[in-house]
Every structure is written in C-alpha cells, then in structure tokens.
Deep mutational scan, measured.
Amino acid sequence: MSIQHFRVALIPFFAAFCLPVFAHPETLVKVKDAEDQLGARVGYIELDLNSGKILESFRPEERFPMMSTFKVLLCGAVLSRVDAGQEQLGRRIHYSQNDLVEYSPVTEKHLTDGMTVRELCSAAITMSDNTAANLLLTTIGGPKELTAFLHNMGDHVTRLDRWEPELNEAIPNDERDTTMPAAMATTLRKLLTGELLTLASRQQLIDWMEADKVAGPLLRSALPAGWFIADKSGAGERGSRGIIAALGPDGKPSRIVVIYTTGSQATMDERNRQIAEIGASLIKHW
C-alpha cells in the first residue's frame, strides 16, 4: 500500500482519535458579512469528516447552483462504474471539434489522439474542462443518470439537468442544476469515506481534487503551510461562485467545507476574496 493510499485508508482512524471539535460562531459572522459585502445569498456548511456531524452552517438547506462543483460527483459516478466493471479508466475516447464547448483548455489539445477516461476526469476536476465533463456525462448516460446515481446514494436534493455550459445559467428560483450545502457536503463525505467506492477509487477521487489547479484564489489562499486540501470550485452566471473541499491540518483532511453564493453584482475577484476570507476565519478558529 502506498503512503497516499495509507493516508486515505486511515482518515477515519486518525479522526477518531482527534480531540473533540467545537464550532466557532466567528466564522458564521464572516459568512454573514460576506453576504453584506456581496449583496447576495451565501450558503455555508462545515462537517466533521469522521462523524458527519454538522459543526457550523448557514442557509444549509437553500438551493444554490452547483456550477462546476458537480464534476466531482460526476467522476465519482464514473469511478463507481469502474468498480462495477462497467468502465475502464484506460479506455480512450475520441471526439471532434464539434464536441468542444466553451472553456476546454485540455480537451482542445487532444482532438487528434483523444483522451482516456482517467485523463478526462483529471481534466474535468483539476482544470474544470467543460468538454471533458460533457464527454464523461455521455459515458454514464447524461445528466439524468448522474441525478439517479445521487438518488441511489441517498441524495434526493442534488440534481443535474443540463450539460456544460448551460448548467451554469443560475436563474433565480430555478431548481435545475442545483444542490443544497448540506446535501453536497453529505454526498461528498460519502464519496470520500464511505463504502460506495473502493479504496482505490476513493484515493483516485481525492487525488484529482488535491491536484486542483484553478481554485488557488479561494480556500487555498488562506491555508497555512502543512495543511491538506482537496477541492473543486465552480463559477456561473449572475454572480455565482462555489467551492467544495476536504481539508485539515497535519497533512490530512478532517472536515468537509461547502460554500456557495449566487445573485451578486460583485466582480469575480471580490467573490473570490470573500470566500478566501471565510476560509481564513475557519482556519483561525479551527
């Protein structure tokens, strides 16, 4: 067993022997301040990774656009098919120029040779490549099948209805392509620590998230040296922004954090800054 596999296998073990965790309302004060600064709703939840206990939450059962955070769930569904012998990570998928959609920095470079399922998941999570996500959605049967996968996990809230990039439209009061912070946090925890996926697939999923290259201005910008984070960000229309993450000190994750916002007129930089400040408060009061 590799060191990384050992780390993920012992996530519940280490967490069980940690000192009790206590909620700190100071972080919620910052979440509410972010709402004021952005002029928009902000949803927040913080779960203990081992027990699933909610440590703090704000608007945990209000719907927010998922945006690209759905790509972690998508690759979880792909990995479940791999575990069941219905898919192979090494299978190569070929596609054409007509398949390319807006923001496809990886797939646009491989029109000639195609990409493997493993490479597509890596591109979808680490670079948020939209064509990679659409190609992977095709392998599982489309958005409705991802929703069905989530329902089978016990998540009857999260739903995907459309493809990239239309799913980022974020129309107010439109339930399409949305989740709730509580539902997303619980589902992410199941994917990373539950028995739904094999140990190898859980490790692969967290490795992809740990290698995320496009979430630097968010929670990662607030992390002290030595902290662990595996995350996936999302951005959408109407001032929408979000991030889902597993993080913790001492090089291992111990909490799940989900943050979503929508309806702001603020710039992307300002949305990023507010999420980073929430992260800084979380870490300060850990």
Rank of each mutant, 00 (worst) to 15 (best):
D250L: 02
M115D: 02
R162K: 12
F58N: 14
E35T: 09
A133D: 01
E119M: 15
T27P: 12
I45Q: 08
V72D: 00
T179P: 00
M184D: 00
V258W: 00
S201A: 14
G194L: 13
V117N: 13
T187I: 15
P25R: 06
L135C: 03
R41A: 11
D99M: 07
G76F: 05
Q204E: 06
E270R: 02
G234N: 01
G39Q: 09
D177L: 00
E102I: 02
D177V: 00
K30E: 10
D83G: 06
A230R: 03
A123K: 06
A235L: 14
T112W: 15
C75E: 01
T126A: 09
I259R: 00
R273D: 03
H94L: 07
A235W: 06
A124E: 01
N98Y: 13
A77P: 02
K284N: 03
K252R: 08
T262N: 05
L199G: 10
A183S: 08
K53D: 12
G85T: 06
A235N: 14
E210Y: 14
R189M: 03
G251P: 11
H94D: 02
G279K: 01
T116P: 12
Q274P: 07
V29G: 11
R271Y: 07
P181E: 00
S68W: 00
I206N: 02
M268R: 10
V78P: 00
R41D: 12
Q37T: 04
T158R: 00
I256W: 02
K32Q: 15
G248W: 10
V72G: 06
L192Y: 05
E169P: 05
W208Y: 09
S264Q: 11
S221I: 12
G236P: 00
V258Q: 01
H24G: 05
A222Q: 11
E61D: 08
D212V: 10
T178M: 02
S254C: 10
V78D: 01
A235Q: 14
R118L: 10
T69F: 01
R241Y: 14
G52R: 14
E237R: 11
S254F: 13
A84E: 05
Q204F: 05
R189P: 04
L120K: 01
E56D: 10
I45V: 05
L79P: 00
P217R: 12
D33C: 02
H110A: 15
T138K: 15
G194I: 11
S122W: 09
A183D: 02
E270K: 01
L74I: 14
I243Q: 13
S221V: 09
I283W: 02
E164I: 00
A77L: 07
H151G: 11
Q86L: 02
L120A: 09
A266G: 06
A235S: 14
K32R: 14
I93T: 14
P25E: 07
E62Q: 02
M127Q: 11
E237N: 13
R220L: 14
T179K: 00
G248Y: 06
K190H: 06
T198I: 08
R271G: 11
Q86P: 08
L247C: 10
G154R: 09
L223Q: 08
G242S: 13
Q204S: 05
E175L: 07
V117G: 05
Y103I: 02
A40L: 08
A266F: 08
Q37W: 07
L49E: 04
H151V: 04
Y44L: 04
K144T: 05
D207G: 06
K190G: 09
R176I: 02
N272M: 15
L218K: 04
S128N: 00
E270T: 11
G141E: 15
S122T: 12
A182G: 11
D207N: 05
D161P: 00
S264H: 10
L79G: 09
I45Y: 11
M67D: 13
H285S: 05
L28G: 06
A245W: 05
T147R: 11
D177E: 02
L49P: 12
G141T: 11
D129C: 01
R238Q: 08
Y44G: 07
A34L: 05
A84K: 13
N152D: 13
T27H: 14
S96C: 10
L38H: 10
L137T: 05
V106P: 03
T158K: 00
T178L: 04
L205N: 01
K213V: 05
H94G: 05
R271D: 15
R271F: 13
I171W: 15
L47D: 02
A235H: 12
V101L: 03
T69Y: 00
E26G: 15
T261G: 07
F64L: 06
G90Y: 13
A123V: 06
R189Y: 02
S254K: 02
R273M: 06
D129F: 00
R59D: 08
C121N: 03
H24S: 05
H156G: 11
D231Y: 14
